[in-house]
């Protein structure tokens, strides 16, 4: 029972991290039909930049802000320079470009910071909270993860739901041509969408780094787990990304907790295969989903 509770709690924190990356994937996918395979590597880069900033002796929070700000800039720049030219090409071209970017960024980070494992600090204690007399596998830092992801998701959700800018962004994503006829500058909004998605990624980057080995490839598995989460959620629903992230986090936590950590990636693969076989449109797809 104790193991079950601890594994569940771990799965929730982990799952929200997947959700954050998945949210970025979904924001981009529903606007451009592109999966950004570089989403994890971009987060890795912004986290390494924060790591360098930390090395200068400034505190955690300025470095945290730097990471998110760099995410915003990097996301926008990637869209403008690399993605825009392939937007109207076959979808494969975009896959190859974003995958190439993934490798390129990892190579560059390796050349600057080395491929050895570093350690990235956490702003709060990573020791388990004590409930009653027993200590549970949920730390202050895990609380921070939960709060940070939910706040960011809430902000992005509110932007889309309640602001005119968000309404325009939704229109640009759903019906680019109709949006242009309503005076919406679709191109700019796509850039903004990539920038926001990269902020969600950058947040995940700094949240994962303290709890795992920190090297240029540390986001690789997180990316594919987030992909699994996004597919589970239907690939075009932000709420689906959150729920998909939680489900994926929990499933992988149970696999890891009861069958051994080495089986987590295999568990994700099985989960993805099962989802695609049973409910290929995901749990939260819009009614106009893209069935074959």
């Amino acid at each position: 029972m104790r193991l079950f509770v601890n594994v569940t709690l771990g799965g929730i924190a982990e799952g929200l991290i997947f959700a954050s990356v998945a949210l970025g994937l979904v924001l981009i996918f529903r606007a451009t039909n592109i999966i950004n395979f570089a989403q994890g590597a971009m987060a890795m880069l912004t986290t390494f930049i924060a790591f360098s900033v930390l090395g200068r002796g400034v505190g955690y929070w300025p470095a945290f802000v730097v990471a998110l700000a760099c995410g915003l800039l990097l996301g926008g720049a990637v869209q403008l320079v690399l993605v825009r030219p392939v937007e109207n090409k076959p979808p494969l071209n975009a896959v190859i470009v974003t995958f190439g970017l993934l490798i390129l960024l990892e190579g560059i980070a390796g050349a600057i910071w080395g491929n050895t494992n570093r350690s990235f600090p956490a702003p709060f204690s990573e020791r388990g909270l004590v409930v009653g007399k027993t200590s549970i596998a949920f730390s202050h830092f895990d609380v921070f993860i939960v709060v940070a992801v939910l706040v960011l998701a809430g902000l992005i959700g509110a932007l889309f739901r309640f602001s005119t800018l968000g309404l325009r962004m939704r229109a640009a994503a759903f019906a680019p041509e109709a949006a242009r006829l309503l005076g919406i500058r679709v191109g700019r909004l796509l850039t903004l969408g990539w920038a926001l998605a990269a902020v969600a990624g950058a947040l995940a980057g700094v949240l994962v780094a303290p709890t795992s080995v920190f090297s240029p490839s540390y986001m690789d598995l997180i990316l594919v787990y987030a992909f699994t989460a996004a597919v589970l959620g239907g690939l075009d629903s932000p709420v689906g990304a959150l729920v998909g992230g939680l489900v994926t986090g929990l499933v992988l936590a149970y696999v890891g907790g009861y069958l051994g950590g080495a089986l987590e990636p295999i568990g994700a693969l099985v989960l993805l295969i099962v989802v695609l076989m049973i409910r290929p449109e995901g749990l939260f797809a819009r009614p106009t989903a893209r069935r074959v």
């Binding site: 039909n33 592109i34 999966i35 395979f37 979808p91 896959v95 995958f99 690789d220 598995l221 990316l223 594919v224 992909f227 699994t228 597919v231 690939l235 051994g260 080495a262 089986l263 987590e264 990636p265 295999i266 994700a268 693969l269 993805l272 295969i273 695609l276 076989m277 290929p280 449109e281 893209r290 069935r291 074959v292």
Partner: peptide
Amino acid sequence: IAVPATRLHGPYLAGMTLLFALALPFLSDK
């Protein structure tokens, strides 16, 4: 790998094969 991924359009196969590539080494660890 292909049967589930090709049921849908789009980048499913790409993501799935990437996951496969990353997961496989863990099998030999286990």
